[in-house]
């Protein structure tokens, strides 16, 4: 049995009294890639942000590498967060900084490296995602695919051990999507990191995942490996992976 990176026990999240997640119990092993799939508006992003410490759950417990994530003090939490990276759904790039400054930001904030070292690191990460030419451009001067790659470079700048990807291929053409997922895979193997990703694109989910989990109706159904998911007997899983309109799942409009 692999050691656990994450253990969620009966986690519940509500916004203004409206319950979004209920009784979520989920484990993620070290070095594993877990992909969260499911209809829009049913809590995938909320679950991801809860695991990343951006949303505080009302109920339950979250353990990250045997440490109680919800009860640790601010310094411990900050130290743990430094070992995590996140790519946001809409990238959340700093629009007042150039591409190079975006990647340099976490390095300047959390390391004692001098400017020469930071410059080398930035160059290395921009090179890895194929953005060396765009180093002095601002995020709104580059394409959607490039913004996504810049977001990945920034998320990986601190060589995090746990990385969250929120819909890394949203709004991208199939070729760019495939390239982005290949990049995620390559960097994951290079850095030996744990990956938790959200996507609605089943092809990309199959390409990335060690395990898949369906988030629907405020709960999580771990479906197993790609092959197990494809053969899963639950009608909700079957409906989702076949994209059928008729079935037990009812997508809710809005972000998830």
């Amino acid at each position: 049995m692999k050691p656990k990176a994450f253990e969620l026990r009966r986690v519940g999240v509500a916004f203004d009294g409206r319950s979004v997640l209920r009784d979520v119990t989920l484990d993620v092993g070290e070095g594993e890639c877990l992909v969260l799939i499911g209809p829009s508006g049913q809590g995938k992003t909320t679950l991801l942000k809860t695991m990343a410490g951006l949303i505080a759950p009302q109920d339950g417990e979250i353990t990250v590498r045997n440490q109680n994530f919800l009860k640790m003090d601010a310094t411990e939490r900050l130290n743990l967060l430094k070992r995590m990276g996140m790519l946001f759904q809409r990238n959340a790039l700093f629009d007042s900084m150039t591409c190079a400054e975006n990647v340099a930001f976490p390095l300047r904030e959390t390391t004692d490296g001098d400017e020469a070292w930071i410059g080398d690191k930035v160059e290395q990460f921009l090179e890895a995602v194929g953005l060396s030419q765009a180093r002095d451009l601002y995020p709104d001067e580059i394409s959607g695919g490039m913004q996504k790659r810049l977001g990945i470079a920034r998320a990986l700048a601190l060589s995090p051990e746990i990385i969250f990807y929120d819909d890394p291929t949203a709004g991208l053409d199939p070729i760019t999507s495939r390239k982005i997922v290949e990049l995620i895979q390559r960097l994951r193997h290079e850095q030996n990191s744990t990956v938790i990703a959200v996507t609605n694109d089943m092809n990309r989910a199959y390409q990335m995942a060690d395990r898949l989990a369906l988030v629907a109706d405020g709960g999580v159904l771990v479906t197993g490996s790609v092959e197990e998911t494809k053969r899963h007997p639950d009608p909700r899983v079957r409906q989702f992976i076949h994209g059928s309109v008729e079935g037990p799942l009812s997508p809710v409009s809005g972000g998830g």
Binding site: A52, L81, A92, L93, F105, P106
Partner: peptide
């Protein structure tokens, strides 16, 4: 609203 503040937190800064 563009999640840049969340990003600051996720990148290890306060």
């Amino acid at each position: 609203v563009t999640e840049q503040i969340d990003a600051v937190r996720c990148l290890g800064a306060d």
